[in-house]
Amino acid sequence: MSHDHGHQHHHHEPAQYGKAFAAGIGLNILFVAVEAIYGFFSDSLSLLADAGHNLSDVLGLIIAWAAVWLGKKLPTKKRTYGYKKSSVMAALLNAIILLIAIGAIFLGAIQRFAHPEPVAGKTVMIVAVIGIVINTITALLFMSGRKTDLNIRGAFLHMAADALVSLGVVIAGAIILFTGWEWVDPVTSIIIAIVIFAGTWGLLREAADLSLDAVPAGVDADAIKTYLEQIPTVLNVHDLHIWGMSTTETILTVHIVRSQIEDNDLLLEKLEKELHDKFGIEHATIQIEKGTYVCGLAPDNKV
């Protein structure tokens, strides 16, 4: 009976977003200061409240940045995968923060329906335009990585959501100033909240899946099993597990029963390369069995 383990280590560094995070955090802290100053001198509670809300965006960016930094730390005897999972935790936390913000927007809109408030003044609209510019610039810094890294997508959605909120303030304010239709303000807020929720739901679902070690989106587990089963000398493939070590790196473990084991090292080298090149598996652990005993992990429902 022989058990061979193939390990493949690709030191896959996440995209270098350090400067993007620093710029985004700096711009948003500056915007919070502008809102707080204008809010204080114009006696605008809405501006002061929005300044507080934008502090949560700074927190979201800090969380995402910390996860990227932690992901680069080396493994230890206790944390054998290092802190790579922190990117998944950051994406999940940012999704929850966004959902809380959406809830606050809905609540504010409902309250304005029940108790209409004066339309946002010109000062508020001017500050909102500044917000559109700053949040759009910050969102664009993370746009390229939003499709490949869930953690970066969380940062992108935070900024894009705030740009939408600021745009809503300007559009609603302009319409109300010209028409006097005060109901436009809460309606616009609800529409924006729905749009943000549509983007956040996907982030939340994927982050929750990754935190539960589900197969990452874009990885076809059936195709991987079929590929392994079609290799000559392979009699059986079982105990196949695929999960995300981080928001950018995928792990695979599997047991393979072979009719011959003399060329295990050559096969392992081939499998590790092709699993990486064809399916994006960054870290593969492969246990090869001769089939002279019944593996306790062979049943599909056995974990």
Rank of each mutant, 00 (worst) to 15 (best):
171 I>S: 04
28 N>S: 11
263 D>K: 08
141 L>F: 14
43 D>K: 10
269 E>V: 00
8 Q>S: 15
260 Q>Y: 03
91 A>W: 02
276 H>C: 07
225 K>W: 01
287 Q>P: 06
238 H>L: 04
63 I>A: 04
158 H>Q: 12
224 I>F: 07
142 F>T: 09
133 V>I: 15
216 P>G: 06
274 E>C: 04
52 G>S: 11
64 A>I: 02
217 A>D: 06
149 D>G: 07
4 D>I: 11
178 F>Q: 14
122 K>I: 12
106 F>Q: 06
187 V>L: 14
21 F>D: 09
238 H>D: 06
206 E>M: 02
183 W>V: 15
22 A>R: 09
268 L>F: 06
283 H>T: 02
131 G>T: 06
97 I>A: 10
230 Q>C: 05
214 A>Q: 14
156 F>W: 15
100 I>L: 14
214 A>M: 13
118 P>T: 07
268 L>D: 10
20 A>E: 14
140 L>M: 12
159 M>R: 10
169 V>F: 12
97 I>T: 03
297 L>Q: 10
90 A>P: 09
59 L>S: 12
171 I>V: 15
110 I>L: 13
56 S>W: 08
164 L>F: 07
99 L>F: 10
256 I>G: 11
240 L>E: 05
19 K>Q: 13
95 A>P: 09
239 D>R: 00
114 A>P: 02
145 G>T: 12
100 I>G: 10
208 A>D: 00
247 T>N: 04
206 E>V: 02
191 I>V: 15
265 D>A: 08
128 A>N: 11
209 D>G: 07
154 G>F: 06
290 K>W: 01
220 D>H: 05
69 W>C: 14
247 T>V: 02
58 V>D: 08
272 E>G: 14
123 T>P: 01
282 E>R: 04
34 V>R: 04
106 F>E: 08
223 A>Y: 10
187 V>R: 05
293 Y>P: 02
144 S>A: 14
208 A>N: 08
299 P>F: 04
128 A>M: 10
35 E>Y: 00
288 I>E: 03
250 T>S: 10
60 G>I: 07
244 G>H: 00
31 F>S: 00
33 A>T: 09
249 E>C: 08
108 G>E: 06
36 A>F: 06
205 R>I: 09
297 L>I: 00
213 D>V: 07
37 I>F: 15
227 Y>C: 13
29 I>N: 10
12 H>T: 11
112 R>K: 13
204 L>G: 04
39 G>M: 11
35 E>S: 01
40 F>A: 15
250 T>Q: 09
2 S>L: 08
172 A>K: 00
100 I>C: 13
90 A>I: 06
183 W>I: 14
205 R>A: 10
131 G>Y: 05
241 H>M: 15
279 F>E: 04
280 G>P: 11
164 L>H: 05
181 W>L: 15
105 I>G: 06
170 V>Q: 14
278 K>T: 07
205 R>D: 03
128 A>L: 02
24 G>V: 05
99 L>R: 00
113 F>W: 04
20 A>C: 08
283 H>I: 03
29 I>A: 15
145 G>R: 10
83 Y>I: 02
49 A>E: 08
237 V>F: 05
57 D>G: 14
140 L>E: 11
295 C>R: 00
20 A>V: 04
126 I>W: 15
301 N>P: 07
280 G>R: 03
